[in-house]
Design a protein around this nucleic acid. Structure first.
Length: 219
DNA sequence: CTCCTGACTG
DNA sequence: CAGTCCGGAG
């Protein structure tokens, strides 16, 4: 294990021991996780839950329903998630891809190699690196590390990276080249980071209360 | 860089 | 009442 790998594990354990297992999307429906990953783009998860609840009530939380429903109507149903017009289009573009490439068979989709699938997802308008990786890790259980704004901020503040705007793929490599390739670890690690981000590592950080307050910082 | 959007927080 | 939210496109 590399020096950096040990540091990352230390960071993970500090977070995990304070916050406990976060159980992100355990046993949740694969398709629902994919939809959630798109709806949560720059949006608080609480608002995404409302949108998903409404989709269930209207019985449109399926590839078939999203493909056929009127885009305007879809945008109204997902309205609580914000950016509802553009996200309605993104959902439709996404399910079109699902149908064209995999006949909406998510089991079949899962058999495809990780990076082939990643390239396909990135070719869809509205699916960027973070959304693609969230779908790959949390819905399809592929071993890839999800990087987000919190990840960059936390690594920067704890001096693991020297600039707060390092490249997405570089930061992803930093985790993947120094940790065991483990879906469960990647899943929990990112979840822990997000929780630290929204509870402590905000723009105005609450360092005194943070589980990472003594991590890699000279006092 | 700006726009996209509603809901919630401090 | 401004800032922010599990970003991405133009």
């Amino acid at each position: 294990m590399s020096i950096l790998g040990n540091k990352l594990i230390e960071m993970f354990e500090l977070m995990f021991n304070h916050q406990g297992p976060l159980n992100w999307w355990p046993g949740e429906d694969t398709f629902e996780i994919m939809i959630g990953a798109i709806l949560t783009q720059n949006t608080a998860w609480k608002n995404v839950e409302k949108a998903i609840t409404q989709m269930k009530e209207k019985k449109i939380l399926s590839p078939e329903a999203i493909l056929t429903i009127d885009e305007e109507e879809l945008s109204q149903v997902i309205r609580p998630s914000g950016y509802h017009r553009i996200k309605a289009k993104r959902l439709k573009d996404f399910v079109k891809f699902i149908f064209e490439k995999y006949g909406a068979n998510l089991i079949k989709m899962k058999t495809r190699p990780l990076y082939a699938l990643r390239d396909e997802l990135l070719s869809i308008k509205g699916i960027g690196a973070e959304t693609a990786d969230s779908i790959l890790l949390y819905a399809l259980e592929k071993p890839i590390f999800v990087v987000d704004a919190y990840t960059k901020r936390i690594l920067y503040r704890h001096k693991i990276i020297s600039s707060s705007k390092d490249d997405y793929e570089d930061i992803q490599k930093l985790f993947m080249e120094n940790l065991e390739t483990d879906v469960a670890l990647f899943n929990e690690f990112h979840a822990q980071i997000v929780n630290i981000g929204k509870n402590y590592c905000k723009r105005e950080p609450k360092c005194e209360l943070c589980p990472l307050k003594d991590f890699n910082l000279k006092r």
